[in-house]
Design a protein around this nucleic acid. Structure first.
Lengths: 256, 256
DNA sequence: CGGTCCATTGACCCTAATCAAGCCACGTGG
DNA sequence: CCACGTGGCTTGATTAGGGTCAATGGACCG
């Protein structure tokens, strides 16, 4: 609650069978896998990577040769227009699979940047098809993750297109809170909230100044509290109603 | 160019092997499939469906038991807020696969509505996994389609979040034109453009009135021409530059 | 001939962008 | 120790882009 600092990123385990000791897979937020499939993921896995806060995971205009699973830390996907305006497409939490869109991209795609220090498991892009072939179940899971991410963007698009500033902020706070909740990241009602107001503004399609004013207003109303990089939701129902955004309790999802 | 009316929707062929005579599959916009996979798609296929202009393909708050491939006509995915504000998430052209997000949805999802009369091939949602298992290649193709659709929404999110009105219109016109172009739907430089201004407004996150004014302005500048349900791009480079949206020549994609 | 749908335009207003300044918490180097 | 720069947050003043309201007109239809 009065955090020292963000906990140093947890590194994926090493060794012959790193996935056996995976710190994420214990998490009930993720579906268990058959032994055989776990072994295949291990074979598909090429290593791990550590990125500093603010560092690039995928460069916006460079085609990445890898796929990733975010193991620890927070990140976001974004696109920028040529004059520098940036739109954050979505935030990424541990367990999120990164880089799939590139696989089939005709042209330019998006960048991915770490917000906090982050660690990732890396996979070879070339061998994705191999994985589908060897274990269709994993292919199905990847499709699942892709479809789930698409749903998130859908929500974000509604936000950017049709909600006003307060509604946008309310929706985003609840969305992040619910996602963190599913991943078991709530501590005493507080979630790590490592984003600065520029991140929020870029995610919501608002200016920095207006984001600040809106955030303050909601906080003054007692709906939430944002303190030193941690977020507490004080009035979840009010925020849900304001944002017209009601996320159901989230199911467990696959983890690649 | 001076169209009588939109051509009556073309119906998918019937018979024992409807996919053999599929009118879409001849189209070079779509990747050929091995005989074996085509047979499996046929097995997975449950029939066809015809929807009138304005009719629902998927009801917004009802979980659909089917998946679809749009065979003919135009449609769109949308979400509405509880007070009626609507956001169109994306437009659908023949060949687009519909309903995948539902498959893995925790909660509420989106609606799909036909703009013109439309025909669809229907598939059983329950047997999706079966298809992945029997033909991983088809699973891979479905993932491909999902990833491609996600890229489209990404673009739309940038539009709604960061582009101004003229840029939004320019971007949308070029996006639709390029997609129709790939599908071979350009006739003498004209594309069918069956959307009314409310559709455009809802897709762009603008009001109807402002959409009208912006559309008129661009047309008065000679960038495009919108006439009786058909669109002609007069200054593609200007529109691309204005919208800061440059779509590369599009690759062939899978067709389920 | 009235009703409906859609496009169009003008008048007015408001939300959110822009501009500008000040604040605090830092880290760094003299 | 202090001066300075930097990054992030906060606030007020002003402006503008786009929303809202209202009215008109054409095309089509029963």
């Amino acid at each position: 609650m009065k955090p020292e600092d963000y906990p140093a990123p947890v590194c994926p385990p090493r060794g012959a069978h790193p996935c056996d000791a995976c710190g994420l897979r214990n998490n009930p937020a993720f579906l268990p896998l058959a032994h055989e499939q776990l072994r295949l993921i291990e074979a598909f896995r090429t290593g791990e990577r550590e990125v500093d806060a603010g560092g690039a995971i995928i460069h916006e205009h460079r085609r990445s040769t890898q796929l990733f699973t975010l193991y620890s830390g927070w990140a976001f996907r974004y696109k920028t227009l040529s004059d520098g305006r940036r739109q954050i497409l979505g935030f990424l939490l541990p367990g999120d699979f990164i880089g799939l869109q590139d696989e089939f991209a005709d042209g330019q795609t998006h960048g991915v940047e770490a917000v906090t220090g982050a660690t990732l498991c890396t996979f070879s892009r070339d061998r994705l098809w191999e994985m589908f072939k060897a274990q269709p179940k994993l292919g199905y899971d990847i499709t699942w993750l892709a479809a789930r991410e698409e749903k998130l963007i859908d929500d974000n698009l509604v936000t950017a297109g049709r909600r006003n500033a307060s509604e946008r902020v309310a929706m985003l706070l609840m969305q992040l809170y619910r996602r963190a909740e599913r991943a078991g990241m709530i501590k005493d009602g507080w979630v790590e909230f490592p984003f600065n107001q520029q991140h929020i503004a870029d995610a919501l399609g608002l200016s920095l100044v207006h984001t600040n004013k809106t955030l303050r207003r909601l906080q003054r109303l007692g709906l939430h509290k944002l303190d030193n990089g941690w977020l507490r939701i004080l009035e979840p129902h009010a925020l849900e109603a304001l944002g017209d955004y009601f996320e159901r309790p989230l199911r467990a999802v696959p983890l690649i």
